[in-house]
Amino acid sequence: MRHVEEVMGTVVSIELADDLPPERLVELVGSTCAWLHEVDARFSTYRDDSEVCRFRRGEIALADCSDDFRHVLDRCADLWRDTGGYFDANGGGALDPSGYVKGWSVEVASRRLADAGSIRHYIGAGGDIRMRGSGPGGRPWRVGVRHPWEADQLAWVLSVTDGAVATSGTYERGAHVWNPLTGKPAEGLRSVTVVGPDLAVADAYATAALAMGESGLAWLAQRIDEGYESAAVTDDGRAFTSPGLPTVD
């Protein structure tokens, strides 16, 4: 079963490859979409009544926020430390955990689907994708990573059975990632893709490496021991991949 939902300012694609009754698949898709809309309502920086905006204005204290909100802020703090400050939910001057929330919400959605009986599924939200189990026909899921200059071409095709793929780049939205240490737009890398076991972490790592510029290549290499492989393209067109990146020949 396939479904497309507009939520969190992007288009989310959901595909369930499980051998389950059609009505059960519909229920699973519905509960997944409901969760994503709940996250959007709570964490949107564009809705005045969201938990994020209310917290920003001082209308609610951290102790009175939801468990999910406190979890997200704790993980953003952890990632700020782990990335040497390059992943910064406060980098724009006001709290904005969006760089973590999208990947986290999809990761949680995948875990909820698995707990509900869907052990073969795909959830894609922009450049953030979580796959679990095998795809249609029992084959691995295939993920195309867009060429950073040629929109109709692919830089890599990845083969993933159970894992996450996150891509951050400057080729679609321009200079939307900033180097928080300099206060200037990130430069040096045009595209970063990270593959690993947790989408929230992979997404944050891709964003942090892009913010670092070319020094992010060495930093990404150190993430291999954590189970995160990567691919990157520099502003001048050089391509780099880690040894274990699951590419299709």
Rank of each mutant, 00 (worst) to 15 (best):
T241N: 01
G213Q: 09
A89W: 14
I123G: 03
Y122Q: 02
V145W: 06
F43P: 03
T247L: 15
S134N: 11
W156L: 11
A94D: 14
V165G: 00
V165S: 01
V52T: 06
D82N: 03
W178F: 10
D198F: 14
P136Q: 05
L189K: 02
R173E: 07
E38K: 03
L36K: 15
D249N: 10
R57F: 04
V201F: 14
I60L: 04
W178V: 15
R24F: 00
L181H: 08
A114G: 12
D74S: 04
Y46C: 01
D162M: 07
V194K: 03
V12L: 07
V72N: 07
S168K: 04
E59G: 05
R57T: 04
E107F: 13
V106T: 12
A221D: 11
V177R: 04
K184W: 03
P185K: 04
S98N: 14
V52I: 10
G216Q: 02
T83F: 12
G92P: 13
V177G: 13
A186D: 03
E15I: 01
D49I: 12
G91I: 15
D115I: 00
P180D: 03
E15A: 00
A186T: 03
G91D: 15
A208R: 06
E172V: 15
E27C: 00
L95Q: 08
G127N: 00
G133D: 01
F240P: 09
L220P: 12
S98G: 01
L154G: 12
T161V: 13
R70G: 05
R2H: 13
L25A: 09
D96G: 02
A114Q: 00
P185A: 08
L16M: 09
L158P: 04
P243H: 06
G196E: 12
A204Y: 13
I224K: 05
L217G: 14
D40I: 14
A206L: 04
T167A: 03
D198T: 01
V177T: 11
V72F: 08
V192R: 06
L36V: 08
A211Q: 05
V26Q: 01
L28C: 09
A166K: 10
A63I: 10
L154F: 06
M131L: 08
G174S: 05
K102H: 10
E187S: 12
